[in-house]
Each structure stands twice: as structure tokens, then as C-alpha cells.
Amino acid sequence: MSSRERILGRVRRALADVPRDDTPYERAVERAYLREHGGLGVEATVDLLAENLADYRAIVHRATEEELPAVIMRLLAEHGSPYVLVPPGLPPEWLSAGGPTRVDDRAESTPAELDGVASVVTGCAVAIAETGTIVLDGGPEQGRRRITLIPDHHICVVRVPDQVVASVPQALGRLDPARPLTWISGPSATSDIELDRVEGVHGPRTLEVVLVGGE
């Protein structure tokens, strides 16, 4: 007997007390919890996102479409990055204000090569206000997972209000589970040493989020 059959057989015997017509999934779970907490308006939801991002020590900026290239250039300059990593579908105008040398992520870029690049600029798939989370789904503006992991400085652009949802349930509804997802809430952190929160163990130690939208 294969272990697969053995385990499935054990499960079935273990569940001998459970009737085969047990309550089906649709009726087994009472979802009395809220779809979102608070029912805030669009503007207040974006404000909450900014507040919660900052609470977990992401650095939040706001910009209009026109201002965006200048803001990105300033942030890169402030970080002193000679190179910036760029996912394949990043809108070219985002980096149109000049600044550090672009490094395009290519399939053959090795982790060691990426390790030499200080900053990365990406978009995102969705941002969650209640938890201060941005979610990446590997779309063309975001690129492979590794490019937002190895550099020490991540600039993430969120289009507001279109990409902002209030809650975790709403975010899951917008996301495609077939894509590899990375949910990011503040920079990498650890509390392993006497429970002191320390920013930055392995992921980017500086996370800057630019909320872009409006006139």
C-alpha cells in the first residue's frame, strides 16, 4: 500500500463518526465577521493606509502624476543609490527625471548580481488600508519576487484611490491566487532579541511608499 493510500485510509477511519452527508462547506461556516471595519469614505481610506504604513515604519510620500518622476528621483538621490533596479513593465515616465543608472531585471540576473543594486522601484497590485499592507503579484510593473527582496531600498508606487482597498477580505477578492504574491507591511523586522523590534534583517531595510493620484 502506498503512503498516500495509507494516510487517506487512516483519515477515513478516523472520521467514522462523521456522517457522509455532513454539513457542506457553503453552510458550515457562519461568516458573521465584517467585510471591512468602519465603512470609511475613499479619502479617509487612503488616509488610513498612509497612517498604518507609517505606523509600521514605511516612509510615506504623496504626489500627483506630474510630480511623481521628480519625487522618485529625489528619493533615489537621498538614498545615494548609484544603480536602480527596474522591473520590465515599469512606466518609463516614472524614471524620466534622470537619476541613477537603470538596471533592468533580466531572467538571467543572478541573486549575486542583484545584490550589488541598492534600490528598486516598483508598482503594486493592491494596498490594504486597515493593515498598512502593499501586495505585489509579479505583474509587469512589479517584476520577479527577488527584485524587491535583495536591494536594501524599495520604492513602491501605489495609485490612489484605484489600488486601495479597506480590508483583507476585499484584497483577497482582487488577487489572483495563481500568481506568486508578496504581502509587505513595513520593512523587514525581527523581535527575536528580547522582543525589541529591529528593522531590517533580510528584506529591504527602507520601504518608501509613494501614493500617487489627484491633480
Binding site: 465577521y33 498604518n52 509600521y56 531572467a107 490594504i128 486597515e130 493593515t131 498598512g132 499592507t133 509579479g138 520577479r144 519576487r145 527577488r146 483583507v168 483577497l172 491566487p177 495563481a178 500568481r179 506568486p180 504574491l181 508578496t182 504581502w183 509587505i184 507591511s185 513595513g186 520593512p187 523587514s188 523586522a189 523581535s191 528584506g203
Partner: peptide, 30 residues
């Protein structure tokens, strides 16, 4: 449900810094 209850119960955060999800393998990523 669990992405709301787990972080708050474990590290007492609204959300933990990183959550990864993956489905099988993806072309060129991972």
C-alpha cells in the same frame, strides 16, 4: 479569516511584515 487573526494573535501586529503565497511553480519567478 486567518490572515486577520494569525498576525494579531502571534506577533500582535495588524499584519506581519511579509506574507508569501505561491501556487506550484511560476515561469521565470522563483
Amino acid at each position: 479569516v486567518f490572515l486577520q487573526t494569525l498576525p494579531r494573535s502571534s506577533t500582535a501586529e495588524r499584519m506581519n511584515p511579509y506574507t508569501s503565497t505561491w501556487t506550484g511553480t511560476s515561469d521565470g519567478d522563483g
